[in-house]
Amino acid sequence: MNRHNATAAREVRLLARSGALTGPTANLAPGFVQANLAILPRDLAGDFLLFCQRNPKPCPLVGVSEAGDPMLPVLAEDLDIRRDVPRYRVWENGDLVAEPTDLEPYWRDDLVTFAIGCSFSFEDAMLAAGLPVRHIEQGCNVPMYRTSIQTQPAGPFAGPLVVSMRPLLPAQAIRAVQVTSLLPAVHGAPVHLGDPAMIGIDDIAKPDYGDPVSIREGEMPVFWACGVTPQSVIAHARPDFCITHAPGHMLVTDLLNRDLSLL
Rank of each mutant, 00 (worst) to 15 (best):
V97H: 10
F241L: 13
I81F: 13
R83C: 14
Y106A: 08
N2C: 04
G188M: 02
G23I: 12
V33T: 04
L127I: 15
D208Y: 02
A205E: 14
D211L: 06
S18V: 07
F32T: 11
F48S: 04
I215V: 14
A45Q: 05
S65W: 04
N93L: 10
K206V: 13
G94S: 02
R89I: 13
Q150A: 15
A20Q: 15
A38I: 11
G139I: 11
W224R: 00
C226R: 05
P73T: 06
I234A: 04
T25G: 05
V179A: 03
M250R: 06
L256N: 14
W107N: 09
R17A: 13
T147W: 01
S148Y: 09
M71G: 14
R166M: 00
L37T: 07
L260G: 00
L169E: 11
I136L: 15
T7N: 11
H187W: 04
I243E: 05
N141I: 14
A237V: 09
P41H: 08
A185D: 12
H236S: 14
W107T: 08
C59D: 07
P132M: 03
T22W: 02
L50W: 09
V213Q: 01
D43G: 08
D95R: 15
L75Y: 02
Q53A: 14
L168Q: 01
L182H: 13
R238C: 12
L37R: 04
F157V: 09
L14V: 11
E123P: 03
T101N: 15
V85E: 06
C242A: 14
C59K: 01
P153R: 09
H135W: 10
E137A: 11
E11L: 14
F223Y: 12
D84V: 08
G68T: 12
L61N: 08
I39L: 12
C242F: 07
M144I: 08
M144F: 02
E123H: 13
Q231H: 11
Y88N: 00
P184S: 06
G139H: 10
T229D: 08
C140P: 01
N55W: 05
G63P: 09
A128M: 10
A197N: 05
I215L: 00
R238L: 04
F120V: 13
Y145D: 00
